[in-house]
């Protein structure tokens, strides 16, 4: 019974309560790094790792963290895992680490991580927390990948760095500039809500 509930929770994180397309949170890194698909997925997976690990730790410690100082505690926990992820990326994925730059350390202050810890991990049993953070993390990664696909194809004519559009296809430089991030995000959200409206 609880597994069904957990799977539902997971689905909610990916689709209905998608952190980007439905909640519209953590937009700063989204707009900054989705100039290519690789960067988008990279930041998404890094966030997924930090989110899942710190939510599980918060969940395990939820009876010991004093309510008054819970936010500093959450930050210390997520900072720990962010540091681990950053060091691992520096060692094994140096080029991706360089492309993402400041946005890897900034996962500490990512509002998806904080929101899930505060509103879910600190109140729910571990299995639910695992599925919730995995769903949210994958939803975030998927959203980054979709925006990355749109921007990379329109702006550079490539996918994962490989040219997919013919030379004659004009590259719209604006799509890999910050403004293009807003355009892509806005149109995707508009499309999704139109789709939802039609289905409902």
């Amino acid at each position: 019974m609880s597994l069904i509930k957990a799977v539902k929770r997971f689905k909610k994180g990916v689709l209905d309560e998608n952190p980007i397309f439905s909640q519209a949170v953590a937009l700063c890194p989204v707009l900054a790094v989705t100039t290519s698909i690789t960067n988008g997925i990279g930041l998404g997976l890094a966030t997924l790792a930090v989110l899942t690990a710190s939510c599980l730790v918060v969940c395990a410690l939820r009876r010991f963290i004093p309510t008054q100082v819970r936010i500093p505690c959450f930050i210390v926990i997520s900072a720990t895992f962010t540091t681990i992820v950053r060091l691992l990326m520096e060692a094994f994925l140096p080029s991706l680490n360089e492309a993402l730059g400041i946005f890897i350390p900034l996962i500490v202050a990512n509002c998806i991580v904080l929101a899930r810890m505060e509103s879910f991990a600190a109140k729910q049993p571990p299995v639910m927390v695992l599925f919730d953070s995995a769903g949210m993390g994958l939803g975030f990664t998927g959203a980054l990948a979709i925006i990355g696909v749109v921007r990379e194809i329109l702006g550079l004519g490539t996918m994962f760095g490989i040219t997919v559009m013919p030379e004659a296809f004009p590259r719209a430089t604006i799509m890999i500039m910050p403004a293009g991030g807003f355009f892509a995000l806005g149109f995707i959200i508009a499309g999704l809500s139109a789709f939802k409206k039609r289905r409902a």
């Binding site: 719209a172 430089t173 604006i174 403004a179």
Partner: peptide, 10 residues
């Protein structure tokens, strides 16, 4: 302005 930002060269 958008065209200018998107396709500066042409």
């Amino acid at each position: 302005a958008v065209l200018m930002a998107a396709y500066a060269l042409p």
